[in-house]
Simulated assay, not measured.
Amino acid sequence: MPQRHGQDEPEREFDLRWADDAEHKEPSARARMLAARWKENPPGPVPFRAEPDHVARRQRRSGWVSTAIVLGCVAGVIVLLGYVNFRGAY
């Protein structure tokens, strides 16, 4: 492994152990930013899961909408190919 910043491997290993064993570890920049933001304006409660009725109703409806869109596109392509084929016959 190449040497970094003039340190040999035993000194570097000591620095890593010393840093890992520190009693106080500084939070990340994102953690500090969120802590500051939430101190002034705490977030509201968020449920772990959505209500089952809402999810089931949305999935059922979107399934039919997706199926109608796919079938409509397939029908449109068939009609377009038939028209092109019909115009090319004459």
Rank of each mutant, 00 (worst) to 15 (best):
H24Y: 15
H24F: 15
K25G: 00
K25A: 06
K25R: 14
E26H: 12
P27F: 03
S28K: 12
S28P: 02
A29N: 03
A29Q: 07
A29R: 11
R30A: 08
R30D: 07
R30Q: 13
A31W: 03
A31V: 06
A31G: 02
A31Y: 03
A31H: 08
R32G: 00
R32P: 00
M33S: 10
M33G: 03
M33W: 15
A36E: 13
R37L: 09
W38G: 00
W38V: 01
K39H: 07
K39T: 04
E40P: 00
E40N: 13
N41G: 00
P42K: 08
P42D: 10
P42C: 07
P43D: 03
P43Y: 02
P43N: 03
P43R: 08
P43Q: 05
P45I: 08
V46N: 06
P47W: 10
P47M: 09
P47T: 08
F48V: 09
F48G: 05
R49Q: 05
R49V: 08
A50N: 07
A50Y: 06
A50G: 05
A50M: 06
E51R: 11
E51K: 09
P52I: 03
D53C: 03
D53H: 09
D53V: 07
H54C: 05
H54Q: 13
V55C: 11
V55P: 08
V55W: 14
V55E: 11
V55L: 14
A56D: 13
R57P: 03
R57M: 15
R57F: 15
R58D: 06
Q59T: 13
Q59L: 08
